[in-house]
C-alpha cells in the first residue's frame, strides 16, 4: 500500500521537474508563471514523499528536533539539486551545487559523521568546485557568440527532457521503494550498538598512549596501563564501560579502574583507525589513483600547450 502511494508521490515530483525543464524555453511573464507552477508541483511531490516516509515509520518523541533538522537539510539539498539541473547559467549551477554540498555536510553532522562532513566541505566546496569555476571561466562564451546563431542556446534548451525524467523516475521509485522494505528491528539495533562500542574500545586499545591519557582523566595518578593475563589492555563491560588495570605514581599496588563510555574515541579517531587498520591497501590504492590522475592531467595539459605553440609558430611564420 505504502509503496503505491510512494510511486504516486514520485510521479508528481517528476511531473513537476519535467514541466520545469520544458518551461525554461518560454520567457517573459507567461514563462515565469509556468515556472512557478511547475516548481509548486515539484515541491508538493517532494513534500509528499517525505511525509510518507515519516508516517510509515514511528518516530520517538525525543528525536523530533533532529528529525526536523534532517528534513530541513534534505529539503534544501533537493531544491538546490533541482536548480543545478534546471538553471540556464553554468556559474549559478556550480554555486547551487555548493549549496547541495553544504546541506549534505549538515546532514552528515546530524548523522554523526563529523570528519567526513568537514572533509566534504573542504574537498568538494573548497577544491573541486573552484576547479569547475576556473574551467567555466576558461571556456566562457563571449557575448558576441551568445547573440549569434542557434547553437548558443544549448544551456537553456534541455535534450530529451521527457525520457530523462522517466529514467530518473524509475530509478528513484525502485531505490526509494527499498526504504519501506528495510528491516530495522530494535533488537538488531541493540546488537549493532554493543558491537560498535566494543569495537571502539578496542580501537582505543590500539593506541596505548591515548588510552593512558583517558585513564588519567578518571584517576590523575595513573602512570601506565598493565595488560591483562590474556594480553588485552582492557575488558569491555555489558554496561558499555571498560575496565583497565593501571599502575599508580604514588606507589599503590596496581588496581583496576572503570572507564565510562564518555571516554570512547571520537569520530575522527575511529575513521583514522579504520583507515590504517582495516583498509590499508585501499588507502595505498587511493594514493595510486590520485597519482595517475595527476599524471593524466599533466599529459592532457602538455598536449594543449604543444598545439597552441605550434599554431602560434605557424602564424608567426606566415
Amino acid at each position: 500500500m505504502v509503496p503505491l502511494l510512494f510511486y504516486a508521490a514520485c510521479a508528481v515530483a517528476s511531473a513537476g521537474l519535467l514541466l520545469l525543464l520544458m518551461a525554461k524555453a518560454g520567457t517573459g511573464e507567461h514563462g515565469r508563471a509556468k515556472r512557478v507552477a511547475a516548481s509548486l508541483i515539484g515541491l508538493a511531490g517532494i513534500a509528499w514523499i517525505l511525509v510518507l516516509i515519516v508516517q510509515a515509520i514511528p518516530v520517538p518523541d525525543n528525536s523530533l528536533g533532529q528529525l526536523g533538522l534532517i528534513l530541513l537539510c534534505s529539503f534544501i539539498s533537493i531544491a538546490a539539486a533541482v536548480r543545478v539541473i534546471t538553471h540556464h547559467r553554468p556559474v549559478f549551477c556550480a554555486l547551487y551545487f555548493v549549496l547541495v554540498v553544504l546541506s549534505g555536510a549538515a546532514t552528515f553532522v546530524l548523522l554523526s559523521a563529523e570528519f567526513v562532513a568537514f572533509a566534504l566541505v573542504i574537498v568538494y566546496a573548497g577544491a573541486i568546485l573552484i576547479t569547475y569555476l576556473f574551467v567555466l571561466m576558461l571556456a566562457q562564451q563571449t557575448p558576441a557568440d551568445l547573440n549569434g546563431s542557434d547553437a548558443v542556446n544549448y544551456d537553456s534548451i534541455p535534450r530529451e527532457p521527457a525520457s530523462a525524467v522517466i529514467a530518473g523516475f524509475v530509478l528513484v521509485a525502485v531505490l526509494g521503494g527499498a526504504v519501506f522494505g528495510a528491516d530495522r528491528s530494535p533488537a538488531r539495533a541493540t546488537i549493532d550498538q554493543a558491537r560498535a562500542i566494543e569495537g571502539a574500545w578496542y580501537d582505543l586499545a590500539w593506541m596505548p598512549r591515548t588510552l593512558t591519557e583517558q585513564a588519567r582523566r578518571v584517576d590523575p595518578t595513573v602512570i601506565a596501563i598493565v595488560p591483562e593475563a590474556n594480553g588485552h589492555l582492557l575488558r569491555v563491560q555489558p554496561d558499555h564501560s571498560a575496565l583497565v588495570r593501571v599502575q599508580h605514581s604514588d606507589g599503590r599496588p596496581a588496581s583496576t579502574i572503570t572507564l565510562p563510555p564518555s571516554l570512547l574515541p571520537d569520530n575522527t579517531s575511529r575513521v583514522g583507525m579504520a583507515l590504517v587498520t582495516r583498509f590499508p591497501v585501499s588507502l595505498e590504492l587511493a594514493g595510486v589513483i590520485l597519482l595517475m590522475a595527476m599524471l593524466g592531467a599533466v599529459v592532457l595539459a602538455r598536449r594543449t600547450v604543444e598545439s597552441t605553440t605550434t599554431t602560434a609558430s605557424r602564424e608567426s611564420n606566415a
Binding site: 516516509i53 534534505s74 533537493i78 547541495v100 534548451i157 530523462a164
Partner: peptide, 29 residues
Amino acid sequence: IIAPAQISIALAVSAILFGLGLIGFLCRR
C-alpha cells in the same frame, strides 16, 4: 540508537539526489 525515520529520510534523499544527477546528465547539453 538512531530513530529509523532519520535513516529512511537520508536514504530517500540520497536516491533523489542520484536520480536528479542522472536526469541532469541525460538532459543538459
